[in-house]
Amino acid sequence: MTGIALLGAGIFAREEHLPAIEASPAFTLKAVYSRSQKSAEALAAAAANASSIDVYFDSPSVPGKSLDDLLARADVAAVIIALPILTQPAAVQKALTAGKHVLSEKPVASDLDSANQLLAWYGNLGSAAPIWAVAENFRFITSLNYAAEQVKKIGGSVTTFRLQMNSFVEPENKYFNTEWRKTPSYQGGFLLDGGVHFVAGLRLLLAAAGQKITQLAGFSALLEERLLPVDTIHAVALTQDGKSGSIGISFGTEFKSGLEVEIVTTKGAVTWNPRGVKTVTKGADGKKVEEEKAFEYDSGVKVEVVAFGQAIEAGKADPRQTPIEALRDLEILQRLLESGAGGAVVQKIAV
């Protein structure tokens, strides 16, 4: 099995990545890293084999315990990076330079300029470079992939589409209560941090119908003052065929919640939510036929870690985890934010 290290910060690394690594037949967890000794030790303590995991940190400074020391280990061939958004790109570069395969958390970077610079740097490493994969667990959710299969199955041309996500980030929310999220120094706040998930889901279903978003325009708002800089966006988007649909994402609606993505074609409609897929078509008699399939909740994280391991074995990144896919998610989200800031200024999607 491949020796792997987890570079993590906060609850998400403990609750999602540790179980995923431990469940993967491809990896053996060798070490963990976090900026402070306290958080690194807490991360290691949450692992099933805590006593056999080495702990690394940069504060306080202890000889042999830095991130550079971890990356120098010959028995660690890969790392999963789950660090704050602004610190991830430097960690990705450091790990790849050390010859480690990397699975880094979404978003690929805080903005398009930073992301493009990182992708260009990686491209210059050449074909012998370690694998760099970007984690977007929505592309591995069982129910969402089933929905994509249904979109392909019903066929037809897209007539419209819809992404609607509403939630409310409570003041005591465990993900909110990290300093880098409470006072974000990157665009969009939760709309960037979490919004790329929903964009990825919409893109997956549109791609199943042979479509992609090429233009969009929307309005943004801040409904909850603590969720700076904005927490809500409502937009209209166009595909390359000129078909329009809607995108609504809000983290500040206390009395409305839920997540749905819907694709409507000339042959039927598919509506997805994390626990079910509804397909509507016409039967031979011309009457509408509805089919619903229920699913257990599935975050997709374990499957994406397994896919990373399989990519290392195959020597090639899984297409669902390539940096360019993550860049496309980021571009749509950034253009939504830019359009909202300008009062529904039309934005074109280049990637």
Rank of each mutant, 00 (worst) to 15 (best):
residue 74 A to S: 13
residue 146 Y to C: 01
residue 106 K to C: 06
residue 101 H to F: 06
residue 27 F to S: 05
residue 143 S to Q: 01
residue 244 S to T: 10
residue 286 G to K: 12
residue 126 G to L: 03
residue 304 E to M: 15
residue 149 E to D: 15
residue 59 S to G: 12
residue 89 P to Q: 01
residue 51 S to I: 08
residue 60 P to Y: 09
residue 174 K to I: 13
residue 65 K to A: 09
residue 169 V to D: 07
residue 23 A to T: 07
residue 181 R to I: 13
residue 313 E to V: 14
residue 89 P to A: 04
residue 337 L to V: 05
residue 30 K to Y: 08
residue 3 G to L: 07
residue 205 L to C: 05
residue 335 R to S: 10
residue 237 A to Y: 04
residue 337 L to I: 06
residue 200 A to G: 11
residue 75 D to N: 11
residue 76 V to P: 02
residue 243 K to L: 07
residue 179 E to W: 15
residue 343 G to R: 03
residue 93 Q to Y: 02
residue 11 I to H: 11
residue 84 P to D: 02
residue 71 L to D: 10
residue 134 V to A: 08
residue 212 K to H: 14
residue 13 A to R: 00
residue 152 K to C: 07
residue 337 L to H: 00
residue 25 P to W: 08
residue 150 Q to E: 14
residue 184 P to Q: 06
residue 294 A to T: 13
residue 65 K to W: 04
residue 7 L to M: 10
residue 30 K to C: 11
residue 70 L to W: 04
residue 126 G to P: 02
residue 206 L to Y: 04
residue 25 P to D: 09
residue 263 I to F: 04
residue 330 L to E: 08
residue 261 V to T: 12
residue 197 H to T: 08
residue 245 G to T: 04
residue 29 L to R: 05
residue 178 T to C: 13
residue 90 A to N: 07
residue 294 A to M: 11
residue 216 L to F: 09
residue 307 A to M: 05
residue 191 L to M: 08
residue 233 I to H: 00
residue 101 H to P: 04
residue 88 Q to E: 06
residue 229 P to E: 05
residue 199 V to E: 11
residue 298 D to C: 00
residue 60 P to E: 09
residue 97 T to S: 13
residue 340 G to W: 01
residue 107 P to A: 09
residue 256 K to E: 15
residue 18 L to C: 00
residue 234 H to R: 11
residue 34 S to A: 13
residue 320 R to N: 11
residue 52 S to Q: 12
residue 180 W to E: 10
residue 203 R to N: 15
residue 79 V to A: 00
residue 131 I to R: 05
residue 61 S to H: 15
residue 333 L to T: 14
residue 70 L to C: 07
residue 349 I to V: 08
residue 17 H to G: 07
residue 308 F to Y: 03
residue 221 A to N: 09
residue 251 F to S: 13
residue 235 A to T: 01
residue 147 A to P: 01
residue 8 G to D: 01
residue 74 A to R: 15
residue 249 I to A: 09
residue 83 L to F: 13
residue 61 S to T: 15
residue 97 T to P: 05
residue 322 T to I: 09
residue 36 S to N: 08
residue 307 A to E: 01
residue 42 A to V: 08
residue 297 Y to L: 14
residue 58 D to K: 12
residue 145 N to C: 00
residue 253 T to A: 15
residue 347 Q to W: 04
residue 188 G to H: 05
residue 260 E to D: 15
residue 110 S to F: 12
residue 236 V to K: 11
residue 44 A to I: 03
residue 147 A to M: 01
residue 271 T to P: 03
